[in-house]
């Protein structure tokens, strides 16, 4: 692969002489792309002369790293104490079934990414979900398809 276009190669080249720097290199790739993909990991492993198995041991140990491109709309469902007690677990289940994905995953069409967070700092509105910075309070499972359609429409208009 052309070294100029290869993020994994460039990053690997920068870090390979420094021992114990795999995690820094991975941070850097995610910083640029938003995630570390299979090809990035392969290129990085080759350039840094680290087995791919070790690269993925690190990538999957830390929850911070994303392995696939996150969806355009990042849905954060709060499962902090207040939101959980107020029934956000049922809201989360509804998101999962509507989108057909689990937490930490993105939809194949690249539109939605679902994640679970612990407290977004507005427990008074519990249960709370946040989509791309927009907060939805007093959530119910029935609101889930409505919100998803809102965002789908918005993306359509954008396009």
């Amino acid at each position: 692969m052309d070294n100029d276009a290869c993020l994994g190669c460039q990053t690997g080249d920068k870090w390979r002489r420094k021992r114990g720097s795999l995690i820094m290199a991975l941070h850097e790739i995610q910083g640029v792309k938003g995630y570390v993909g299979w090809q990035d990991a392969m290129d990085l492993a080759k350039t840094m002369n680290i087995p791919l198995a070790r690269v993925y041991e690190v990538l999957t140990f830390y929850n911070f790293f994303k392995l696939v491109a996150p969806g355009k709309a990042v849905i954060s469902v709060c499962t902090g104490t207040a939101c959980f007690l107020k029934g956000n677990d049922k809201v989360l289940e509804r998101f999962k079934s509507e989108l057909g994905i689990k937490e930490g995953e993105s939809t194949p069409d690249g539109l939605f990414h679902l994640q679970v967070v612990r407290c977004v700092g507005c427990c008074g509105l519990a249960p709370v979900c946040v989509v791309n910075g927009r907060t939805y309070g007093r959530m119910t499972p029935e609101q889930v398809p409505v919100i998803l359609n809102e965002w789908r429409e918005a993306f359509k208009e954008e396009a």
Binding site: P51, R54, Y56
Partner: peptide, 25 residues
């Protein structure tokens, strides 16, 4: 697989209760 045979087929995936021994990714 890693340290004795230097093959690196097997590795740990994820951590804690979700840990699984398998190939990379």
């Amino acid at each position: 697989c890693q340290n004795v045979q230097n093959v690196w087929a097997l590795s740990y995936l994820r951590r804690g209760f979700a840990t699984k021994i398998t190939g990379a990714n």
